[in-house]
Each structure stands twice: as C-alpha cells, then as structure tokens.
C-alpha cells in the first residue's frame, strides 16, 4: 500500500518536473545565451539546483525518522531530474526518462523493505473509503488505458499503468500476478529483440519501432498495475470488515 502510494506520488511529481522542464526550455530556447546580471541562464539554473541540494541534503542530515528520510530521497531525485532538464536539448528530455525510472524503481523496492523491516504486515483496520473509489475506477481506468495505448512506449506505459493501478487498488483483484509478471517479462524480451534489430538490421527500423513501442508499453503498464494488486483487497470497493465486526 505504502509502496503503491509512494510510487504513484513519485511518478506524478517526476512527470510534473519533466513537464515544467520542457516548458522552461520552451520560453528560453537559447540555453546558455540569455544573460542576466552577467550570468548565463544555465548558470543561474545550476546555482538554483545547488541551493536545492543544500536544502534537501541538510534536511536529510537532520531527519532521524526512517519514513521521512525515505520521502526526502524522492525530493532529492527530483533535483537530479531538474539538473538534467537544465540542458534544454532533446537529449536531455531523453535522459530524464531513465533518471525518473531509476528513482521510481528504487523507491518501490525500498518501500517494501521498509514495510518488512518495520513488520507492517498486519492488515490495517480501516482503509480509505470514499465515494470516488466506488464510482470512478472503471471510467478512469478505461480512459487512461486508451490514452496510454495511443501514447505507446514508456510514457504510454506509465499512463496506462497508473489507470490500472487505480482500478486494482479500488476494486481489488483475484488475478494471479505471476501471470502478469510473465507477460511483462516477454514484453521486455520484445523490446530487446527490437533493439537488436535496430543495431543489426537498421533497414527494418519500422518493424523494430513498432515492436519497441508495444514492448515497453506492455512491460511498464503491467509493472505499475501490479502495484495496485499489492493492496490485499477483497473486491468490496475499499469497504471491508475486520474480525467479524461487520461493515465499517
């Protein structure tokens, strides 16, 4: 549950960051050329990033609580993405994506370690239960799934995966996640095959492009949606009973 929520939060913040990064380069097309007080706009941005580093690492130095430190690491990863976005080239946009994924992946693993370490395995007595969790999941999931498939590739996988995550987290599932993971593994192989085609048979770039787009979409979407199934939900739409006490 914590894993799912924090991964969701990480993705959301990071997507916002990359979006603002893009917007920043839109208004200032000439990174390193515009000058203010005799400094280029790249230098000003870098000084800003370093100030952010000071603030966040000072916070990390002072903080003692494990959960808060875990949340602070997310803040720190966003600063790394900002530093890459300062470049303002297409290459920088392409580098943000791996940087973002590394952050989300590590946060997922770490949240689970935190749960095991603190022995937070007991079922909570009450779950979040609000109306939107009963009415919205289907329409939101379908909408995000369709838009994700249109986007394809990594972005599409993240969008579609978040839609499915929301659905599974609200509605619950009895699906065997092992099967989903197997599919995701094959999707990864699809992408590797596409990469080999790109490198050895560049003339077939079109075939490889479609293979890569589908492979990464399926892989990422499934991985993210599995997070939704990790909340041990019985399918009652967030409402549950504990120890025969009736519906809460």
């Amino acid at each position: 549950m914590i894993a799912a929520i924090s991964a969701f939060a990480a993705t959301a913040t990071a997507i916002t960051t990359s979006a603002t990064g893009t917007a920043g380069t839109l208004t200032s097309l000439t990174v390193g050329e515009i000058e203010l007080f005799g400094l280029s706009n790249f230098t000003i941005g870098l000084v800003g990033a370093i100030i952010c580093i000071f603030i966040s690492f000072y916070a990390l130095m002072r903080e003692k609580d494990d959960l808060h430190r875990l949340l602070l690491t997310d803040l720190i990863e966003v600063i790394a993405l900002i530093a890459i976005a300062l470049l303002g080239t297409d290459l920088a946009e392409a580098l943000i994506l791996p940087g973002l994924v590394v952050g989300v992946a590590e946060l997922t693993a770490m949240s689970q370690i935190y749960i095991v370490k603190e022995k937070l395995v007991r079922e909570p007595e009450s779950y979040l239960d609000i109306e939107v969790m009963h009415t919205a999941p289907a329409i939101i999931a379908v909408g995000m799934l369709i838009y994700g498939i249109i986007l394809s590739g990594f972005t599409g996988g993240a969008v579609a995966g978040l839609g499915m995550l929301f659905y599974f987290a609200c509605k619950g599932t009895e699906e065997k996640t092992e099967i989903l993971e197997k599919v995701s593994g094959y999707a990864w192989v699809m992408w590797v095959v596409a990469f080999i085609v790109f490198m050895t048979l560049p003339a077939y770039w079109f075939f490889a492009l479609m293979l890569a787009g589908t492979g990464i979409l399926a892989k990422v979407a499934i991985k993210i949606s599995i997070l939704g199934t990790m909340r041990k939900n019985d399918g009652s739409g967030g409402r549950r009973s504990m120890g025969g006490n009736g519906n809460v």
Partner: peptide, 16 residues
C-alpha cells in the same frame, strides 16, 4: 538503500 537512492543525484548531476 537510502544511500543508493540519494547517490543517484550526484551521479546524474555529474553526467548532466
């Protein structure tokens, strides 16, 4: 794990 996570900042900022 915390160390590995915050270590990505110097790595990526260095590469950038």
């Amino acid at each position: 794990g915390l160390l590995a996570m915050i270590g990505t900042l110097p790595l990526f900022v260095g590469a950038a």
